[in-house]
Design a protein around this nucleic acid. Structure first.
Lengths: 201, 201
DNA sequence: GATCCAAACGGACTGCGGTCCGTTTCTATT
DNA sequence: AATAGAAACGGACCGCAGTCCGTTTGGATC
């Protein structure tokens, strides 16, 4: 597996001061504990500061915002997923025909949402730029590339946008939790959708 | 045009007290003024109460929440749109073939988002039940019905969910405003998408 | 070890959405 | 007109995300 970080990297970042590093660990540990106890939605920045034994200013200095904290907590899971679809074994990774990769992408992503979706929801900045965070851009580009490879010539960029919308955590979790839709059914519908988009190409 | 309200109606609602009615008008007028001045995102419930000359409690008693207020402000525009796709002239209304109605639905909805999207974003409750407000349910059912009529037998309910996701205001506004995509291009992509879904039926 | 200063810290503070509850006002009834 | 009780009112209050700024601390330099 590639050693390069696939997640936002600050390029020539000089090492942290020791107290900063210690506090970061303290905060991440405390955040995971709190989420374990109260769920992602139940985590408050004040409680996090308390639990970690630091001031609230420190929390915000470190993560910028609540959404930033959640993204940090997600970054391992995201890097792993990104690694799989970019460099991993087929059908998700390279080597399989594009349609199969598209199907695999949706299927795996649905499973991923099932596991990390609550965190992903909490990480969604409410502003317009929610779609411009590095991970979202990467997914978008990946889908666009697969569409092109599959011979979809009609505005692959927007078609990829539409497919990204379909896979958004909020909606998937809603179908799963509120309407009790099984993941297999979601996956089947995704398969149907991309097949139709590609078949008519 | 049908005289029945298409928007949430409280069934046997006895008439409001006169002070309540007066305050509602005051509040709605003040809200429109504030949105004119500061945009929907810039409206705060406290400022609204001040401008209308009522207490904050009154604002929340009336609308329940900020999202509820925004929904109320949207309700005319929504009722009008609903009337058009349910009872209006083809191709949006009944009479045209289902694929044409699907295409028209997306096209008109994109224009609608262009006009009312900011309000619609502000009206989106952040909770899971954002997809269960009456208007969203109605759109969903309408799309599902058109898909069935067009011969799509593979899980029309979930397919309709996917199509709803594609038309979500947040994403459309993002494409429009951040990426400078023209509405015609959005409409063309929508047309492409629904055509492919239906054609392979 | 003494000095220095940029980086990190912490917690009081602000502004917001939303709630609570004692007070006021409307209207039906007599 | 007097009364009563339900409905509406209003603003103090709460918890939260996020900011500000005076204070502390790590570590590089001499």
């Amino acid at each position: 597996m590639c050693r390069v970080s696939l997640i936002p990297i600050r390029p020539g970042r000089e090492p942290e001061r020791r107290d900063a590093a210690r506090n970061r660990e303290l905060l991440l540990r405390a955040a995971r504990e709190l989420i374990e106890e109260c769920g992602a939605d139940g985590l408050t920045m004040g409680a996090l500061a308390n639990r970690a034994g630091v001031g609230k200013g420190t929390v915000f200095r470190r993560f910028g915002s609540r959404a930033g904290l959640m993204m940090t907590l997600l970054s391992d899971a995201e890097a792993e997923f990104q690694g799989r679809f970019m460099f991993g074994p087929p059908p998700l990774g390279p080597g399989a025909p594009p349609l199969e990769r598209l199907v695999a992408f949706g299927t795996e992503r649905i499973d991923w949402v099932l596991e990390f979706g609550e965190l992903a929801r909490a990480a969604d900045v409410s502003a317009y730029n929610r779609f411009d965070v590095p991970a979202a851009v990467l997914w978008h580009r990946h889908l666009e590339m697969l569409l092109r490879e599959a011979g979809v010539t009609a505005d692959p960029w927007l078609m990829s946008t539409s497919l990204s919308a379909v896979l958004e955590p909020e909606r998937i979790l809603h179908a799963l939790r509120v309407h009790g839709v099984a993941t297999e059914r979601l996956a089947a519908s995704w398969c149907e959708l991309v097949s139709r988009i590609v078949r008519a190409a």
